[in-house]
Simulated assay, not measured.
Amino acid sequence: MITMKDIIREGHPSLTSVAQEVTLPPSKEDKEILSSLLEYVKNSQDPELSAQYGLRPGIGLAAPQINVLKRMIAVNVRDGERLYSYALFNPKIISHSIEKAFLTSGEGCLSVDRNVPGFVPRYARVTVKGWDVDGNEVKIRLKGLAAIVFQHEIDHLNGVMFYDHIDHEHPFEPIPDAIPIER
């Protein structure tokens, strides 16, 4: 089981490195890592388990955040009535809107122990393709909060941190024609 001590923090070189593709069909070890990423995110959202194991609540986690430079992400986020719970190998954004969106509260990260204020421009809608733990192809159309979370996690696979997108001179400058999303 992944705990907070397994999650590396900003400044670690793996967070700014590009992760390698996972060979498919996935190995037993890769399947275990991918499953453990999703298990962490789910457990971290359970108040009892997060208190018992000292887990910081999260809605997504990427393998580079546990110092595994492979293209794997897990997301467990509720957006309105819908639960988006996915663990994917080699996720890739295959199409996106021109329209942008951002979280009005800004973004956070399990690998960042400080508040980084500012709006993070993201695509309002994305289509993501990847492979599940059994090696089956998955294609998901996302919008709103779920689209933002997937983009955040896929950025980790490319060595990009959420604050790399913030305009540091004007962190709360309105993003033209972007959809503000409350969280």
Rank of each mutant, 00 (worst) to 15 (best):
P47K: 12
N67Y: 02
I7R: 07
P25A: 03
A124R: 12
A62E: 00
V112R: 00
I148V: 15
H156G: 08
I33W: 13
Y86D: 01
I66C: 01
F102R: 04
S35K: 14
D134T: 11
S44V: 11
T104N: 01
Y84L: 11
P176H: 07
V149I: 14
S50R: 15
V128E: 11
D30G: 06
A74C: 10
V41E: 12
N76R: 07
Q52K: 15
S97A: 13
L142R: 09
S97T: 14
P117G: 03
Q65A: 04
D134L: 13
P57M: 06
L49M: 10
G60W: 11
I154Y: 09
G80Y: 04
D155M: 10
L37P: 05
L37Q: 13
I33N: 08
P25K: 13
V138C: 05
S27M: 00
I166R: 09
T127M: 06
E32W: 00
G135I: 10
P13W: 12
N158T: 05
K92N: 06
K42E: 15
A87F: 04
S95L: 05
S105K: 10
E169L: 12
I98K: 14
S17D: 14
S44F: 10
M1V: 08
G144T: 05
E48C: 00
I7P: 03
K5Y: 05
V126N: 02
K28P: 02
D46V: 10
G130F: 12
L55K: 01
H170N: 15
S85N: 11
V68G: 00
I8M: 13
M1S: 12
W131F: 15
I175A: 05
N158Q: 09
V138L: 08
E173Q: 13
H168T: 08
E182K: 14
S35E: 14
L145Y: 03
K143I: 00
A147Q: 09
F89V: 08
K31P: 00
M4W: 01
A19N: 05
G80E: 02
G144A: 10
I66M: 04
M161H: 06
L110G: 06
E10I: 15
I175Y: 08
I98W: 08
G159P: 04
M4F: 09
L61N: 07
K129M: 12
S111T: 00
N76S: 11
N90P: 11
E48W: 13
Q45M: 07
V77L: 09
R78K: 14
D167W: 12
A87H: 06
V149D: 03
